[in-house]
Amino acid sequence: MAVGNSKLTLPDYLFWDLDVSKLDLDYSYQLVIERVIQLGTLPQWRAAQLYYGKDRFLEVAKNSRQLSQRERDFTSLFTQSDYNAPSRQTGTPAKN
């Protein structure tokens, strides 16, 4: 089972402590982004960044009281790295 809508679908285990049938991904964006940063897989990170936007993803990471400094630093570095480039997300080679 998964929680989400047509644009973003995430596994229930990210929200084990919530009633996922009542979770609004847009209203609870901070919680969703924090959980993806803490427990999500690489494809889930990319999906959340595409859904919320890179700027909102970084804003939540920067201002979160739930994330450790290590998680905030990694998020900042990873979102700006070549490994997070669109060509990596689709599996197509980057054009130089």
Rank of each mutant, 00 (worst) to 15 (best):
5 N>M: 11
57 F>V: 14
6 S>T: 14
58 L>F: 03
63 N>R: 10
7 K>G: 08
81 S>R: 14
52 Y>D: 12
80 Q>V: 11
3 V>Q: 13
61 A>F: 12
82 D>K: 15
65 R>Q: 12
30 Q>S: 03
77 L>K: 09
34 E>C: 12
51 Y>S: 10
64 S>G: 04
82 D>P: 10
74 F>S: 06
55 D>G: 04
42 L>E: 12
2 A>P: 07
68 S>Q: 02
76 S>Y: 10
22 K>L: 07
80 Q>K: 12
32 V>R: 05
30 Q>I: 04
82 D>Q: 14
55 D>S: 08
20 V>A: 05
80 Q>E: 15
61 A>S: 06
39 L>R: 02
42 L>N: 05
62 K>M: 03
25 L>K: 03
46 R>D: 10
8 L>S: 02
88 R>M: 15
19 D>G: 01
73 D>K: 10
13 Y>A: 15
78 F>S: 08
14 L>C: 06
23 L>I: 04
52 Y>M: 05
7 K>V: 12
76 S>M: 08
58 L>R: 12
7 K>D: 15
33 I>K: 00
37 I>D: 02
36 V>L: 06
95 K>T: 15
68 S>L: 01
57 F>R: 09
51 Y>N: 10
70 R>H: 08
93 P>V: 14
37 I>T: 00
40 G>A: 05
10 L>H: 12
49 Q>K: 14
33 I>D: 03
53 G>L: 06
44 Q>A: 13
6 S>I: 15
94 A>Y: 05
12 D>K: 14
51 Y>E: 05
24 D>F: 01
51 Y>L: 09
9 T>W: 11
8 L>E: 07
2 A>N: 10
87 S>F: 15
84 N>C: 14
79 T>G: 12
40 G>N: 11
13 Y>Q: 11
35 R>V: 06
1 M>E: 10
60 V>G: 04
82 D>G: 14
77 L>D: 13
35 R>D: 01
48 A>L: 05
76 S>P: 03
35 R>W: 02
20 V>T: 09
55 D>F: 07
55 D>Q: 07
29 Y>T: 00
89 Q>A: 05
54 K>M: 14
61 A>P: 02
9 T>L: 11
6 S>E: 15
2 A>G: 03
20 V>E: 04
68 S>I: 05
75 T>I: 11
60 V>P: 02
22 K>E: 02
23 L>G: 00
86 P>L: 09
